[in-house]
């Protein structure tokens, strides 16, 4: 083992990273855990004695329902983002040199306009007498305006629109690494396009896919203003419930407990998924 002095860079990096995370992630989250076992207090938000009431309250089937529905919509969003984003990132990575950089910036620029404002713009598009319906009616493709706004579909469209770059950018960064020679080699070795895709491209870009799924799936559960604006406030996400608990109901222990259980559940789901993947992989070899 080399001493600290011989690895000043490593030491510096580790101190910085650990310091930041311990101070700004661990410490506040300990406060959250503390709040979740406290007693709700109308005057000071939380007070003693400690108890597990908040966790007990979570067993209400209502919250399970909200969680499952939320997970379902987040999963749909992730799937749509992946279907749009994967070929997009691929095509993007094959654009030559400086043009590629320009296209990436062009991709992200719309996202610098406030997301609430963009969600409203989307609403103008989807409304019953909105632009899309007018266009479709004008073209004679439909006879009656479609009811698109305030549906589950509208929420998913909104979530996809807000989260798409979070899928594309990590995918782009792995596609960029995918060397053209590899594909040619695969082709030379007699693999067809389909075989090359499944046996070469997919495995090589899998880290990017997983990163993209994480970056879309997890935030999608919390973007509370999308169901508020596009779902008519009727397709609640977990984010809505927790926000309401903190602000409207002022039940901090419950909100904190819900947040902790949500984190653990999602961590468990991802972990289980990873395990099953690994097992399949081992069997295959």
């Amino acid at each position: 083992m080399r001493s600290l002095m011989q690895q000043p860079f490593r030491t510096a990096v580790l101190v910085l990273v650990w310091g930041w995370l311990l101070f700004l992630v661990l410490a506040p989250n300990l406060l959250v855990v503390g709040a979740s076992v406290a007693t709700r207090d109308p005057v000071s938000f939380i007070s003693l004695p400690l108890n597990l009431d908040a966790y007990r309250q979570l067993f209400d089937p209502l919250y399970l329902e909200v969680f499952l529905h939320s997970l379902y919509m987040a999963a749909m969003t992730t799937l749509v983002c992946l279907l749009i984003g994967y070929p997009f990132a691929w095509a993007l990575s094959r654009v030559p040199g400086r043009r590629q950089l320009l296209l990436i910036f062009l991709l992200i620029v719309p996202f610098w306009t406030n997301s609430l404002v963009r969600t409203y713009a989307l609403k103008l598009l989807l409304a019953t007498n909105g632009l899309l319906n007018s266009a479709l009616l004008g073209l004679g493709w439909i006879d009656e305006p479609l009811k698109m706004l305030y549906t589950e579909g509208a929420v998913v469209i909104g979530l996809v629109y807000l989260l798409l770059p979070f899928m594309i950018l990590p995918l782009y960064s792995v596609f960029d690494d995918l060397r053209q020679e590899l594909l040619l080699a695969s082709h030379d070795l007699g693999a067809g396009r389909v075989a090359t895709f499944f046996h070469v491209i997919v495995p090589l870009t899998l880290p990017g896919v997983l990163a993209g799924v994480m970056l879309v799936l997890l935030p999608a559960m919390g973007l509370f203003f999308v169901p508020d604006i596009l779902g008519g406030s009727r397709n609640l996400l977990v984010g809505n419930v927790i926000k309401n608990q903190f602000l409207d109901a002022r039940n901090w222990p419950f909100g904190a407990a819900a947040s902790i259980v949500l984190t653990i559940t999602m961590a468990f789901l991802m972990f289980a998924h990873k395990l099953s993947k690994q097992r399949i992989g081992e069997d295959g070899v």
Partner: peptide, 20 residues
């Protein structure tokens, strides 16, 4: 309305909006 009643409202509000 005070804290007790607020909890009752909040609970029914969530039930109303999630449609169960």
């Amino acid at each position: 309305i005070g804290d007790e009643a607020l909890q009752v409202y909040a609970k029914y509000w969530e039930m109303l909006k999630s449609g169960s």
